[in-house]
Simulated assay, not measured.
Amino acid sequence: MDAEHLQQVRRFNRAVTGRIGVLSDDYLGSGRALGEARLIFEIGRGGADIRDLRVRLSLDSGYLSRLLRSLEKQGLATSQRAAGDARVRQVRLTAKGRKEWAALDRRSQDVAVSLLTPLGERQRERLLAAMGEVERLLRASSVVIEPADPGSADARLCIEGYFSELQERFEAGFDPTRSISADPAELVPPAGLLLLARLDGQPVGCAALKISGRRFGEIKRMWVAPSARGLGIAQRLLDALEKHAADAGLSVLRLDTNRTLGEARALYARNGYVEIAPYNANPYADHWYEKRGLRPRK
């Protein structure tokens, strides 16, 4: 990693934290540090599951518990077991907590105004565009891609999302029993692999590899949830699949796709996949691609 790149990130972090006033124990004039103030805001008027708060705020259980105990001691929040699932605890703001939430919301709005008001119109537009880009890229950097059990609940959620989208987009619908198989048993080593992409702990994409013989692999189940598109997840999934394939000794990857999936075809084309003659009898395939010469990556 380039040293100047790292220094730029650190300068940016210092500039932002100083400008928005998170360095004191009086964030937004609330008399409390950012951690407590942010937790109040995230609980919100409707309450929240503690498990979701932990994931959303990237907090470990112990620290989150201490923050919640502090809010409860101050009479700002209460927590209890969920009615339908005793394993889930929910937290809600009290009347006093909701009043505090409203005050934080107003003060946060005032800070936003103070950031934008001194700037001219073009500067405001540039700042807002830059903020949007930074937010997207920070979300992208939060995505984790790793091998997963193809029979897990998260894997089933993604694959069902994939099937559902194909059903909507294909002109004649989609029946997975008529397509080339990629069953869970075919997607575990050494027969294959399933990768899941997770954002804030939630599954948002998948990609699979089926291994055929000593040299050939086939890409299956490439999908990204609509809510997570535009973050470069499909490219990262493809890169990870290629690395796993090369590390497994494969030198050729193949795939088939439908003509309606233009974005998928563009992804493969810009990554060196070339169109070839049909190599299977998939009734949903209109295009077949291949990439040769895979090499293990360091």
Rank of each mutant, 00 (worst) to 15 (best):
D154L: 00
E290M: 04
Y273D: 08
D154S: 01
R178T: 05
L157P: 05
A155H: 11
G97A: 08
G262V: 01
P278D: 15
D60L: 08
G272K: 06
V9T: 04
Q8A: 15
L137W: 03
E133Q: 13
A77H: 09
G97M: 00
A277T: 15
T257C: 12
L71P: 09
L199V: 03
A140L: 08
G205D: 10
R178S: 00
Q74N: 07
R107A: 14
R87W: 05
I233K: 11
D175P: 04
S30M: 05
L187Y: 00
L199A: 02
D175F: 07
S61G: 11
I219W: 07
A103H: 12
G35H: 05
A234H: 03
Q80S: 15
P296M: 09
L64T: 15
V274K: 10
L237S: 11
E135K: 03
A207D: 14
T17I: 04
T117L: 13
R11T: 07
R81M: 11
L127H: 00
L67N: 06
G293K: 10
H244M: 02
R169D: 02
V188M: 02
R254G: 03
L93C: 08
S152E: 03
R254S: 02
N282S: 10
P147M: 06
R51T: 12
G262C: 06
G272R: 04
A285I: 13
L115R: 03
T78Y: 12
R295N: 09
R19H: 14
R14Q: 13
P203L: 15
R236C: 08
L59G: 06
A172R: 12
I276F: 14
G205R: 08
L28D: 01
Y284D: 00
S65W: 03
E121S: 13
Q123L: 04
V274A: 11
G29R: 13
M1E: 08
E290P: 01
D149C: 07
R10Y: 08
A228K: 02
D26E: 10
Q235K: 08
I276R: 15
L23W: 12
K99Y: 07
R92W: 01
G132M: 03
Q202T: 06
Q74C: 04
V22C: 14
E125Y: 11
R169P: 03
I276P: 05
S142V: 01
P203C: 11
A82F: 12
A48H: 06
L250D: 11
R270V: 08
D110V: 13
L209W: 01
A153L: 09
R10M: 07
G213C: 00
F163V: 02
E4D: 06
E4C: 03
D175M: 01
G120S: 14
S58L: 10
I145P: 00
N13V: 04
P118C: 11
I20M: 00
T260C: 02
A245Q: 00
L187N: 01
V111E: 02
S181K: 14
D105R: 11
Y289P: 02
G151P: 02
P147S: 14
R45H: 04
E168Y: 03
R54G: 07
G262S: 05
D85T: 06
G230T: 09
R45E: 07
R236T: 10
K96A: 15
S65H: 13
E36A: 14
L294P: 13
R198Q: 09
N271Q: 10
A185S: 02
M222R: 03
